[in-house]
Write a protein that binds this DNA or RNA. Structure first.
Lengths: 338, 338
DNA sequence: ATGAAAGCGCTAACAT
DNA sequence: ATGTTAGCGCTTTCAT
């Protein structure tokens, strides 16, 4: 068995309470004693027992608040992940409130954040919109010493302790390779993307194009269109890019894949499709051979880890290195389903 | 906060010790009291606190024994996973001994198992060879009430509490789809497989062929060879299958991929390769475009989960449903690396 | 058959 | 500044 705090205390010739203070950098210990205790901890390679810490911490009641943008199939899975983590935390006397925004608007997000801060939660997780109102609200959280984790989408210049999300360039480069393979490593492809105002979509376009030009120079991007994560627009824009009779593939960065596939199918064209996020819809499209590859970026895990990381920070003061946590990027094909 | 055992005891009008006995089906409780307590537990939807259980269980010193077949790059990762889990268990007063066989032989496995059983460990995890000597040894473990988990490879007709491993048919079907795509969904492919005496290799062949004939009828299997997980044999046999000048792809079920790729390259042939398990070697082959897809079946996770599941059984008496735990099947392509 | 109490390792409030 | 102690929820031994 590893050393216990009791043994450390004995060796250092002090009480457990004193060791605890040293461990957490609390005051009330003379410099001399502190140095001695630290030395013993170091030599013994002492690490506090995780279970014991969490169990004793469960004396204190805690509350984590989560703010999510409006639900879609992707966000729905994120929510499920957050709820799963919340369930685990119940026995640790920590509750998790999930608040879902009505609209995808920055002013609503800021307002909700202020309301949440008013209730003084122990921690906040937020799918951050990258704008100044949100930034201001998060600064207030910082002032009030409420730790913040951003998840799914990040925001610059704030003191969030961590971002939990996808490694977007990695997924996009993977998409490029897979679409290139699906079309036989040559030919023309189109990019149908979501709202360009979201940095995630911009990055998905950029990394995709870089990977193509570096690794598959015979595959050219011949068309772009913003389909606004919206089925109707997607259907219409797909019709337009299909006017290129030589189009071999379509890369879809966001929602609306069902409509894209429908347009392709109705025209009886052989155009390969690669998209993101395994949902009921994309799973169906894989099964029906409408889509060749789906790149999943762990929606469930994003929700779950956001909550877990916040808890770990609260009780252990730990944070992933670099202040980021990337969920797995997973490739799905038809045969891998079920 | 959920109910505690203390509250359950109060409501039922008994002591905590009595509730504990009821929870674990121990004797020393009258039928009448048992029924009453069970009713309260049910109504309150009481679940014991996991952390508290484990912490209190750490009073008892435990020992888990692991028996592994000789190391190769795959087994090495499995071992790392087991060691990672072992590290987590140290603070719970549970030690993990890993024993590695000298040779890949059933008699040695049986002998080692008997020696392990002689030391009366609290649990055993074994990469089981499917034969009668091993089977007998595992029966003895059962008689002596030592729980057994098989991992990586399973054995029929024994009372192992669980098997931890790959979903082999799933991986093999995925390999078929990917190789079919890599060769353009038509043409001839060869199967270079490991020791046919191992059921894993037989299954990998069978499911691969099934998926091809169901989903990709224009892809035919034109050659087979046993390469014995061995580089020299692999190189030689690859030369032979390459005599088919129209060969478009090779499916490798086990080790030896490096030699296969070398033979292909030396002949300057354009033959696509799909194989299993991300290792330093296969990672290199992906980077150099020698291999198109690597299907990884979570070696690290297999080692880690074997140990974790055994621990969970020891302290919580829980077992995964169906008595199996499959690690993730993950597709790797070049762009997904790093 | 049932209950009381000590102990797992850690934290924090309280006493010295 | 430092030590003492009562918990967190559960298990287990020892009384009754």
């Amino acid at each position: 068995m590893p050393f216990t705090i009791r043994q450390i205390a004995e060796i250092a010739g002090v009480s457990r309470g004193t060791v605890d203070k040293v461990l957490h950098g609390r005051e009330g210990v003379s410099d001399e004693v502190r140095a001695r205790v630290e030395e013993v901890i170091r030599k013994a390679d002492y690490v506090p027992n995780r279970l014991a810490t969490e169990l004793s911490q469960s004396m204190k009641e805690r509350r984590i608040a989560i703010l999510m943008t409006p639900l879609n199939p992707f966000a729905e899975k994120v929510r499920e992940g957050a709820l799963a983590a919340a369930k685990e935390l119940r026995e640790l006397n920590c509750s998790v409130d999930v608040l879902i925004m009505r609209e995808f608007r920055e002013d609503e997000q800021a307002e909700s954040l202020h309301q949440i801060i008013d209730t003084h939660p122990d921690g906040i997780a937020v799918m951050a919109l990258d704008g100044n109102l949100t930034r201001e609200a998060l600064r207030r959280a910082e002032e009030e010493h409420i730790p913040v984790v951003t998840f799914v989408s990040d925001i610059a210049d704030t003191a969030r302790i961590c971002f939990v999300g996808q490694d977007i360039p990695r997924g996009a480069r993977t998409a490029a390779e897979l679409l290139a393979r699906a079309v036989g490593q040559k030919g023309r492809v189109a990019i149908l993307h979501g709202p360009i105002s979201m940095s995630a979509h911009r990055q998905r376009i950029e990394s995709f194009e870089n990977e193509l030009s570096e690794g598959f120079p015979q595959v050219q991007v011949s068309g772009f269109a913003d389909i606004h994560d919206d089925d109707e627009t997607a259907y219409r824009e797909t019709g337009l890019v299909l006017e290129d009779r030589k189009l071999a593939g379509i890369y879809v960065t966001g929602a609306g894949v069902g409509a894209v596939a429908r347009a392709v199918k109705e025209q009886g064209r052989n155009v390969r499709i690669v998209c993101f996020d395994l949902t009921r819809e994309t799973e169906r499209l894989l099964r029906e051979d409408e889509v060749d590859f789906v790149i999943d970026q762990g929606a469930f895990g994003q929700g779950r880890e956001a909550v877990r990381l916040l808890w770990n920070y609260l009780v252990h003061k730990t944070v992933p290195k670099e202040g980021r946590f990337y969920t797995d990027t997973t490739i799905y094909v038809k045969a891998l389903l079920k």
